[in-house]
Simulated assay, not measured.
Amino acid sequence: MSPFEPGDTVRRLSARLKMRHLILLLEIEKHGSLTRAAEHTASSQPAVTNALADLEGMFGGSLFDRSARGMVPTALGRVVLARARAMVHDLDHLVRDMETVASGRAAHLHIGVVAFISGQLLSAAIQRTSPDGSQRLTVTIHEGTSDQLLRQLRDHTLDIVIGRASAAVDLEQMTFEVLYRQQPRLIASRRLAARLGRIRLDWHMLADLDWVLGAPHTPMRDQVADIFLSHGLRPPSPIVESYSSKLIGEMVGANERAVSIVPADIAEELVRTTGVVIVPYSFDWTLPPIAMFTRAQGLQRAAEQLFAGSLREICLQDSEPKRKQRGVESS
């Protein structure tokens, strides 16, 4: 049982805990050494030692253990550090919001986005947050894998994540809303697409072409591998692999032996921007749907609610039946 009543602990922390204490704890975790933490906070080692002792008294237990690896957080320390990291990031966001409001904008959002999300979709959602052009939000887009971005969402680095909802994703402390599903499209250069369009879909023949694919160990890459495995074939080894859909489009468009499989909405963007052509084949995959993730705890700011509502409305309007109509029908 805890030696402190919850009410007493809250009062004690409210009276004594300072932001500099949280920053110090994060420095100790980062460097694993009281001496190095002192160097990076312009303090002396005895001062840091005393400050840590005071903090452990405030929290009612040891926050770090000393080991061969240096200062390692205890179970209590991990809980405190997670909250400390979120509070420090919230302070950074507060400063950014103050600067944004001072410049005549409404607020600033940090949005995490996985690869192969339509830039047109994101742009439309951001623009819709201010139809008349007044008090518009400013946004920083952060790219990464779903796991990376959700960790940043938990520690408050990010406000919203647009990623893939799958069983492999850690949903602890998260809420999510499925926005839409993406259908697959094969893309190629104009000349190769014209040649492929005159023959039936043949995965054995396609396996011998030059493939340009997304990064390994991602849902997109796994889906392409599954397609070939389901036809009894070894997945192709790509000549280029990249997180960038635009680079994939440029490489495919410039190589008359190159092909790639990308989501339909991304394929349509690449047709406009890189000159690739969608090959008129129809096939299926089980790519996890695109979802919007937010933190389960705490209230969303008005700016987050505004962006989420805009994104939701666009996805409802641009539903999957409309996407299929814009896509190419099977031959």
Rank of each mutant, 00 (worst) to 15 (best):
E5M: 04
D8H: 09
R12I: 06
M19S: 10
L24N: 06
L25V: 03
L26C: 05
L26V: 10
E29L: 04
R36V: 10
H40M: 08
P46W: 11
V48K: 00
L52F: 07
A53W: 11
A53F: 13
F64E: 00
S67C: 03
R69V: 03
V72M: 14
T74E: 05
G77N: 01
R78T: 10
V79Q: 13
V80C: 07
A82F: 03
A84S: 13
V95S: 13
D97E: 08
D97C: 01
V101W: 09
R105T: 00
A106Q: 10
H108P: 02
H110V: 09
H110M: 13
I111S: 00
V113Y: 00
A124Q: 10
A125N: 01
I126M: 01
S130K: 10
T138G: 09
T140I: 07
I141C: 06
E143F: 12
G163E: 10
A165Y: 14
V169P: 08
T175G: 11
T175V: 11
T175I: 11
V178Y: 08
Y180G: 04
Y180C: 05
L186Y: 05
I187T: 00
L192W: 09
G197S: 05
D202F: 00
W203I: 08
W203A: 11
D210M: 02
W211S: 03
P219N: 06
I227W: 05
H231M: 06
L233E: 06
P238D: 07
S244W: 01
K246M: 14
L247Q: 14
M251S: 11
G253F: 02
A254K: 12
E256D: 15
S260N: 04
V262D: 00
P263E: 02
A264Q: 12
A267M: 09
A267K: 06
V276L: 03
V277P: 02
V277E: 15
I278H: 05
I278P: 09
W285A: 09
F293D: 02
R295H: 09
L299M: 14
Q300K: 15
A303S: 15
L306C: 11
A308M: 13
R312I: 00
I314Q: 04
C315A: 13
K322W: 12
Q325F: 14
Q325L: 15
Q325I: 12
E329C: 05
S331F: 13
